[in-house]
Nucleic acid binder design. Sequence first.
RNA 1: AGGUCUGUGGUGAAAUGGUAUCACAGCAGUCUCCAAAACUGCUUUUCCAGGUUCGACUCCUGGCGGACCUG
Length: 301
Amino acid sequence: MFNKLLVISGPTATGKTDLAVELAKKYNGELVSGDSCQIYKGMDIGTGKDQPEETPIHLIDIVTPDQKFSVADFQKIGLETIKEIQSRNKLPILVGCSGFYIDSLINPNYTTFSVKPHKIWRFISRLCSVKTLQKIYQFLDPENFSKLNHSEINNHYRLTRKIEIKLFSPKNKNLTLNNNDFDLIHVSLTAPMDFLYHRIDARVQKRIDIGFLDEVKKLLKKYKWTDPGMQIGAYQCLRPYFENKKDLDSCLRNWCYAEHSDARRQSCWFKTKSNATFFDITKTDFKKQIFTLVSRWYTKL
RNA sequence: AGGUCUGUGGUGAAAUGGUAUCACAGCAGUCUCCAAAACUGCUUUUCCAGGUUCGACUCCUGGCGGACCUG
């Protein structure tokens, strides 16, 4: 059975899609987007969707901005999509920058808690302070509470979720293994940060030039600033401008900064949590090296 | 040229004469249903030279720089 999966990851603005399209053409592939933002319909310029002309791309435009979408939804649809592509004997190429999402598809040890977000608990938790949540979790699960690190213990959302799992997971069957058995290769693109920052800044300006403000106006006719899709950084950075609280230039500067920060966190994820092979896109022969590596992997049985 | 105001990390600001603080940027990290999110740690500062004082970002004198007004 054909079970190959090519993964191309890396921070924003490293040219993943272009590379993926080239590889797709060579290996009869189809792209699967591993991007937590491009799933939203109508959010095109702000999320940097570029639709390749001849190569199919999956998992973009699957929900509207007012719909909730989580990594669990992504995992379900993602695995189905990859298997469907493989069943047609085509090569799925997972390409994106959301480490958390990509991990849910390719990490064989990834487990899923069968606990769905609990509406009443989430409502109550929103009224609680971090300190209160700490006390609740400490009471429910003193052992794991003592193991929390500095990030987790101060993180309102994660404490809420930990308590949720503790309270509502059914006994005995609270874990499901993601037992996929892909033959995968993971290529990750990198670049020196200041190089990426320049690219990001230029791209922000370009997005304004090609009509990003109109896109936001159009979205605002149908959706609210508080809708899930509208939480994306690019749109929130422009919010003060649309509410006449800040001038456009300072909003754009914040947008650039937000993307710098995204790029940093994204590359941190792949660097520390994946076992990808890394290629610096400022080196002249990085593509040649990738093609050699992929070719060796693709042709082996 | 004269007058007025003003000089604090890379940027913007705070500090009755008493441990120089905050935000942003930058760097490093955490991560299993918000992840372009949320959270953690770190780096970098009082224009210069004097004076007053136990003690000066703060008060005084001079220099240098900036802003505005008048000519």
